[in-house]
Design a protein around this nucleic acid. Sequence first.
DNA 1: GCGGTGACGGTCG
DNA 2: CCGACCGCCACCG
Length: 110
Amino acid sequence: MARAPHGAVGTYERIYAVVRRIPRGRVATYGQVARLAGLPGRARQVGYALHALAPSTAVPWQRVINAAGAISLRVSNGGLSQRMLLESEGIRFDARGRVPLQEYAWRPRR
DNA sequence: GCGGTGACGGTCG
DNA sequence: CCGACCGCCACCG
C-alpha cells in the first residue's frame, strides 16, 4: 500500500479516507476528491491511488469519475465494470454514457 | 537517481 | 461539444 514516513499519514490513505465518505448512489470527481484530501490540483494522483487498490478493497472506488461525468477506466476490473457497479447503486447514465453530475454529484458540507 | 507514464483537469481554439 | 496542450507529481523500470 502507501508507504509513508514514520508519523505521517500517507497521501494514498488520505485519498482513500475521502473516497470512503462518498455515499452510496452519489459520485465525486477525481479533482473533487483531491481537493477534499488537501491535495488541490493533483487529480492524477487520485487516479493513481485508486489504480493501486486491491480488487477486494472496501474503498468504493467506483464512485469516483472524471469531471465530464464519464468513466475513465478503459478496461473492466475483474469482469465487473464500473458502470455496472454504479447502476446497481441506482445511478442512471445518460444517452452519451455519462453520469449527470448535476443530479448525482456528492455535495459534502465540508 | 532519472525520465517516461498516467483511473485528471483547466484552458484554448 | 470536442480535441489538443500543458501543468501536476508519485510510481516504476
